[in-house]
Amino acid sequence: MSLYNIFGIAGSALSANSVMLNTTASNMANSSSVSSSTGETYQAKHPVFETLYKSSRMTGTALPGVQVKDIVSAQAEPIKKHSPEHPMADEDGYIYMANINVVEEMANMIAASRAYQTNLQVANTAKQLLQKTLTLGQ
């Protein structure tokens, strides 16, 4: 029964999108974090999705879900700021702030949250259809 596979497909999308929400939350939380050198500065992290093919026991080959292939760090140049009184300033008096585009992160957050809602709705509909199928003929 193909309806069972929907739980796997929608479930994979739920976990992939929650990873995206997690990375977005982490990026936004660190949007004003400061470090003393360019190497230590926080870099924005973004998940890369890929199609997940797997066979299922019930119907042979199931249709693809989605999974997080990798989480890549953005290669943005940290923002260098002259602030000698800052406790984390280096010997030249500079601090390095994470270069995070908050607007982009907000857009990603909305995309991930909408995708999560949509897939949850799909799983819910599949559940309702299966429940109705179980009462067939009663």
Binding site: N5, I6, I9, A10, S12, A13, N17, M20, V48, F49, E50, T51, L63, P64, G65, V66, A111, A115, T118, N119, V122, A126
Partner: peptide, 10 residues
């Protein structure tokens, strides 16, 4: 459902 799940997959 598979199409919807892959709506953001490059």
């Amino acid at each position: 459902a598979s199409n919807i799940a892959n709506a953001n997959t490059p």
